[in-house]
Design a binder for these strands. Sequence first.
DNA 1: TTATCATATATGATAAATGGAATATGGGCT
DNA 2: AGCCCATATTCCATTTATCATATATGATAA
Lengths: 194, 194
Amino acid sequence: MLQDCARDNSVVLKYVLLGGLSYQPLTGYQLKQFVDSSTRHFWFAQTSQIYRTLDMLEKEGLLTSEIQEQDTRPDRRLYHITPTGRADLQTWLAELMIEISPAKDSLLVRLFFSAQLDKETVLTQLRLQRSLHQRQLSLYRNEIVALINESTQQRPELKRDALFWDVTRRNGELVEEAYVRWLDETIQRIEAEY
Amino acid sequence: MLQDCARDNSVVLKYVLLGGLSYQPLTGYQLKQFVDSSTRHFWFAQTSQIYRTLDMLEKEGLLTSEIQEQDTRPDRRLYHITPTGRADLQTWLAELMIEISPAKDSLLVRLFFSAQLDKETVLTQLRLQRSLHQRQLSLYRNEIVALINESTQQRPELKRDALFWDVTRRNGELVEEAYVRWLDETIQRIEAEY
DNA sequence: TTATCATATATGATAAATGGAATATGGGCT
DNA sequence: AGCCCATATTCCATTTATCATATATGATAA
C-alpha cells in the first residue's frame, strides 16, 4: 500500500516567526506585516494563527516577551528570540529535506475535471488567471526587488541575507514565468482542440 | 491594513472526490488510489481525511453508497455521485477564481533564513532537492504521459477529458523545469557569491 | 462630531488535516 | 503454522488553520 507520507509542513509557521525574530525583536502585528511582505509567496498565515503560535513558542521557551507602553498607539507585546529559540531555528534550517514540498493548486483541480464545462467558461477562467499571474510576475520583477534593496540599505549588516532573499524572489520569478507560459499554451490548446 | 484574504482551499478535497466519482462509482480505497495517481501533484489527502469527507458528502446528499459483498476480499462501500452532487460539482468547477492559489514551500522558507548556515549545508540541501525535482520532472514526462494514454485506451469515451488531464500534467512539467533551472542557478550563485 | 483608518491583540467556534493505530479478510509464501 | 501482503475501513488525539468577531487607542478626514 502506498503510505501516507510524512510532511514537515506542520511546524513551518513556527520557523517563519523564529526566523523573523532572529533579525530583531518584533510584535505580533509587525510579524504579520513581515509575513505579508516577505514570506507570503511561499508561506502565509492569518493574524489569529500568528498570535496563537507566538503564545505557544513563548510557552516552549523559544521566545520571551515584554509589554511596551506607547503614547500614541495601543500598548503592544514585543517578542524576543531566546538562545534556545535560535538553536532550534538553526537545527530546523539545517535539516535535510528528503521530499519535495507538496503543491496545492485548486485551479489545476478545476481544470482536471473541466471537460464537463463549455469552452468559453474554461477560457474565461484561464484568461483571468493569466492576468493575475502576470501581475504576480511583475511583483517579483519590480516591487520585491525594490523591497530587498530597501532592506539592505537600511540594514547593511544583512547583506549576506539579501542573497538568500533574492534567491527566493528569483524562484517566484522563474516559476511564475513558467506558469504564465503554461497558461498561454493552454489557452491556445483549448481554443484549437476543444 | 492588509486584509486576511479569503481562500477557497477549504473545500477542494470535496470536489476532488466528487470529480473522481463523476467518472464512475468508487470505494474510499479506490479514491485514495485515484488521488495518489492522478491529483497528488496538485491536491493530496490522507486516507483518513478521504473517508471522513466521503461521510460528510453522503450526509449532505451529494453521494449515496451501498455495501458490496466480496468473496476474496473484505466487503467494501461503493460510492455513487447523486444528481445534486453532479450539480454542485458543476457549479464549483465553473466558479471564477479571483485570486491565485497560495503556495507553501518549506524549502524556500529554509532558504530565506539560510544566511545563518554554512555554505556546504546549504549546497547539500540544494543538490538533494535538485535530484528530487529532476525525478519529479521525469515523472511528468514519462510515467504520467503513459498513465493518461492507458486511461484513454481503456475508456475511449473519456477522450475529451484527456485533454484536460494532459493540460494539468503539462503544468507540472513546465513548473518543474523552471524549478530545476532555478535550483541549478541557485547552486551556482551560492558557490560563487557566498 | 462622527466616522474611518491604522495600530494592536485576543478568543471562541469550527473546519481541515495529520499521524498513528486498530481491525478485518483472504491469498500466497516459507 | 506462521508470516507478510494487498485490500478495506474506522477511530482517536492532536495540530493547524480559518472565520468572525470583539476590544481598545489615537490620528486623521469628512
